[in-house]
Design a protein around this nucleic acid. Structure first.
Lengths: 153, 153
DNA sequence: GAAAACTCCATGCAGATGCATTAATATGAT
DNA sequence: ATCATATTAATGCATCTGCATGGAGTTTTC
């Protein structure tokens, strides 16, 4: 796998981890998204927005907070919110004391959709992740993946 | 994390593994792609095509083989190959004995590009994956991720 | 050996995404 | 106070992607 004896070249183990990370990611995401979509639900990104809001105090967050919580691109989230607001899942309200910002609030419909989606999403996760790992393996995997999220560099 | 006592709901450990899988994936991919692009190179997908061909006997594979090797969608690969052929990185040649198929052959330019890309890609992997994991951790991560790739279900 | 079923690759079209920029507001420095 | 800088969100535009389909060629079936 290694090309030239380059000072900075990753070890085989690291390269392997990387390759499998991309593949498992793409692959499992694809399968789970397919189930969600197959059940007639909106894309997973919407679920992430709804969940992020649901977790927040009062079901409210600024777009920026959602972005950081769910790892969205700003322009992307902006457009999701357009559609979600149009469908009555969230509501944009002014942010007190700073007119650049806004607050996004989840509606009852939004909460309901999040719950209904979970009833498909949860089992899909079980099937595509849970069934393939023992409990301890899942814990170790989560821990290892978390180490990759370090934002330094 | 768990909503209702749903028979099929994933355990917290599994949910956690899933969440981190998506995030670490998106996140690390984004950073590495940014470096590749920042160095003026084409998208990572092209690299995957080139590498797949390079690994093959004679530097040749059918599109279908590339698809399966690199987990591409058929229509997507078809279009990548258009552009890559236009840039002289690969060449499409007839498949002897079956006129539906074709062979894609990597050119010298293609090989050269793959090498140049690796000189940026490799260090990026080191920086964003290698630096965050000990060698043994990388091995364990790769092994765990591989278990997710089981294609049953 | 003809018709049906299948495999392989390409492509038109709608919708999603990325990038760069804009508009509006807020903050900080002098 | 004023002006330069920074932050937040939206959007025009080009590109990319997904889906459905098409056309050409091959294998299977009877």
């Amino acid at each position: 796998m290694q090309e030239q004896p380059d000072m900075q070249a990753p070890s085989d183990a690291v390269t392997d981890a990387w390759v499998h990370l991309i593949r498992a990611g793409r692959d499992v995401v694809r399968r789970i998204e397919a189930e969600i979509k197959g059940a007639g639900f909106p894309p997973l990104a919407w679920y992430d927005v709804l969940l992020s809001l649901k977790k927040a105090q009062d079901g409210r967050r600024t777009p920026r907070e959602i972005e950081r919580d769910a790892l969205f691109e700003q322009y992307n989230l902006s457009r999701f919110l357009d559609r979600m607001e149009a469908e009555g899942l969230v509501r944009r309200i002014p942010y007190p004391g700073d007119r650049r910002r806004q607050l996004v609030e989840i509606t009852e419909e939004g909460r309901a959709l999040q719950r209904r989606m979970w009833s498909v999403y949860g089992p899909a996760i079980s099937r595509h992740v849970g069934c393939k790992l023992a409990e301890g393996e899942a814990e170790r995997l989560a821990a290892l993946l978390q180490k990759l999220a370090d934002t330094r560099t």
